[in-house]
Write a protein that binds this DNA or RNA. Structure first.
Lengths: 225, 225
DNA sequence: TTGACAACATACTAACTAGTATGTTAATGT
DNA sequence: ACATTAACATACTAGTTAGTATGTTGTCAA
């Protein structure tokens, strides 16, 4: 049984759950829970085979539900894809790449350390799948406007949240005052996508360290010491 | 030999029914020519809609040929995809990103200038399509071994050829002697893919300059002056 | 308790898909 | 000049696809 959390062990449970939990009500029908189950299963399917490469029949077959439930949640396959971006992938980015930075006094260290944790130490089997967001950007952004819009929003969120921490780095005196935080934030997110894309294409496990070293050196250049 | 010099310029180009320039070689059947026509048309289709998003019927419909010709050339859709990578995309990378560097005494300048030419000055409509190689890497690399192998070869070619010019840069005294040319070559190719992916996702035309400036600054750090 | 409706399940369809089977014709060697 | 075959064209198939039509049942307010 594949789930998001089993793949990304560090990913905490996100999103809402059912209303106030009083008595253990044995619900056999729960709209939100069903939506979560579908999106959870579908995430892995789309992640591994692409949006166009996955059929709705495939998804529901891996679910405890049926096609009726699917189309009760999502009017069309595209709408389902939009929900994937907004309700699964976007929160995941925050959880994996932004929230952890809060623990670092120097966000630059946090960015590097997190890259090492989540990319450098990832098993090759995971690296071959790339980045869920980047995959969808490359595949669906030019094909469908609705996708493009939502993927753009997700990317911009990542950039904006990264910049907040870079501003904090500047305020804390780690970052030189003349560096353009917006530029660096864009570059950092670009590097994430580029790293993922590269490691997906190449098989060389040493490639990460090569890329990482370059980024590290760049960070030194823009840092006070 | 396929030499697609300006693929991007022929977004709207019609098929080139070139009458023989010299001897009136009025061939109505030409295996190589047919292969070229199919791959040429198919490249744009796959480029815009993805490999899985394009059907063989779609492709042949945009061709002067039919399905019979297609399957006479390619045993299966996958084999056709492999040919796309090897016969169209790989030569394109060399044409667009490697060969132009020969004209530069300082290859680092050439890399930056070429990025500005082919990415920075590209019309937004083209940027939205991303990079043909990167698109296929993200979409097909985890799905099919044959694709993965050939895409990896193409990427490695790009890296290796880039490194050759970086070594030349070092020999010419432009690059500091202590820099690892292989690392930098990997980073440069990663940056290309990252740039493309980023600009595909975002709509901001200024994003290129932000990314470019960072890369330029990094090049200064590793350069003699 | 009982409608009433939300949350499903099941069965179906029209369109599309990769691939095949088989026919047709242009080129080529002899 | 003609038989052979490579280079196609045409017609078809079995399987898949997104989406729909319609039936069933759990849940809850009154």
């Amino acid at each position: 049984m594949l789930s998001i959390t089993s793949v990304f062990a560090r990913l905490k449970a996100v999103k809402s759950n059912k209303p106030a939990s009083k008595a253990p009500k044995k619900q056999t029908r729960d709209l939100e829970k069903s939506r979560k189950e579908i999106l959870d299963v579908a995430f892995m399917e789309v992640f591994t085979r692409g949006f166009q490469g996955v059929s709705i029949d495939d998804i529901v077959k891996k679910t405890s539900l049926t096609k009726g439930a699917f189309y009760h949640q999502f009017p069309t396959k595209l709408d389902f894809g939009y929900a994937l971006v907004e309700e699964v992938i976007s929160p995941m980015i925050i959880d994996r790449w932004i929230t952890p930075l809060e623990q670092f006094d120097n966000p630059l260290d946090g960015i590097l350390k997190q890259m090492k944790n989540l990319i450098g130490n990832a098993p090759p089997a995971h690296l071959k799948l790339g980045c869920p967001l980047n995959n969808l950007v490359q595949e669906m952004s030019p094909i469908d406007k609705g996708f493009h819009k939502r993927l753009q929003t997700a990317l911009q969120l990542w950039i904006d949240e990264t910049e907040k921490h870079l501003k904090r780095a500047k305020a804390n005196g780690y970052l030189k005052t003349n560096v353009n935080t917006k530029q660096v934030a864009q570059f950092v997110v670009m590097a994430h996508e580029g790293f993922y894309g590269m490691l997906k294409g190449l098989d060389d496990p040493k490639a990460f360290h090569a890329l990482y070293n370059v980024l590290e050196k760049y960070f030194e250049v823009i840092s006070h010491h």
